[in-house]
Design a protein around this nucleic acid. Structure first.
Lengths: 197, 197
DNA sequence: CTTCTCACTTGACACCGTGTCAATTGACAC
DNA sequence: GTGTCAATTGACACGGTGTCAAGTGAGAAG
């Protein structure tokens, strides 16, 4: 539960992170994480009651390490809707490859584990808020294409920016990360920004 | 292997299909399929050497039952690129909900089972060909937006039409199927069809 | 009527990964 | 010294897949 050494806890999280990053989320077992942290498998359960719990804790650790919050500053301080949209896509798009391993592992548990599903969905709802904010900013500028309501536009942007789509484009279609970002920005403009007067 | 009753085989495939459709692909075990087919779990292995193999066979059975091939006729016989694009999105978009259960089950195995991964990827390559054909048709009409090479346009269309995106929009965003189809058609036009002269 | 074949059954077992438990060790603290 | 506490050791349960050997029962063939 909670009567434990915080140093070990951190070592476990670090190990989980490293392994998940290295293996792109596939086939990382409790045994592997324990071994890498220099403890026994059973000892993991002194710190995390479940594999799902460990993975979830790892995502928070990851956010902390990678400065998830600060990355959003440019988008929050953007001076126009278009700028905000661009900044958000850049920030999130650059974040995906960094979280990909753990994201994939959590995503794989989503279908079978309720806690994992809840955690993942919450994160995606957070992400959706970012999309919503960008669309709202565009709308406030009267730049949102009349083809879409703000809500539907948000749904579309949120879907475009999914981790799965990033996987497909960069890993399966072999797009360089750079092109992924540029193309998504240009698609978003084309889809969401109203045509000239 | 192959010394068996084809009637039983069909009964197994039917059972698998029904269960996968009903449960949206989640948690369908060999035991369940066997029970529903009225045989023992072990007898399944007289017909399919592996769970993956059974699932894969089920996809082919599904295609046969649902007439996968005929659905593509309208897109193949389209008289313009735009028409072909529309027809393809309509055909594939309408197919997804019908294959969703089995698709999800196969997708879930993709990460852990090589045979499942291969089968899924092949199917997705097939689907990609449909995308490519539509983009090529557009290009032949000189209607493909200069923003994208045919290859990149294919990548984008292929990604837009992924099963995961359908899931997200219809199940998570609660879009009615109708809206899914209409919106995807309109997005595709906006993205791929060149602006006026 | 017997005998052979063949699909299927029965019951057992192996493997893997997760999760649990009881007993033990070793360090540090009072 | 005695207690505390994190961690170890070794064992076991569970669920799901896959395997195996022996048995059953029905139909075909002699």
């Amino acid at each position: 539960m909670s009567s434990d050494n915080p140093e070990t806890r951190k070592r476990i999280l670090k190990s989980a992170l490293t392994l998940l990053e290295a293996s792109r989320g596939k086939g990382v077992r409790m045994t592997d994480i324990a071994k890498r942290a220099g403890i026994t498998r059973q000892a993991l359960y002194l710190h995390f009651s479940t594999r799902a719990e460990l993975l979830i804790a790892t995502t928070f650790y990851l956010d902390e390490v990678k400065g998830a919050e600060e990355r959003l500053v440019p988008s929050r301080t953007a001076r126009s809707g278009i700028e905000r949209l661009d900044a958000y896509i850049e920030a999130w798009g650059a974040y995906i490859p960094e979280i990909h391993g753990i994201a994939k592992a959590l995503l794989a548990m989503r279908d079978t584990d309720d806690a994992a599903a809840k955690a993942w969905d919450e994160r995606m709802q957070d992400m959706r808020q970012g999309c919503e904010a960008a669309i709202d900013a565009l709308n406030r500028d009267n730049m949102l294409s009349p083809d879409h309501s703000p809500n539907q536009a948000t749904d579309i942007l949120w879907t475009m920016l999914s981790v799965r789509n990033w996987e497909q484009l960069t890993l399966e279609c072999a797009w360089p990360q750079e092109r992924y970002i540029e193309t998504l920005k240009s698609l978003a403009r084309r889809i969401f920004v109203a045509d000239g007067p």
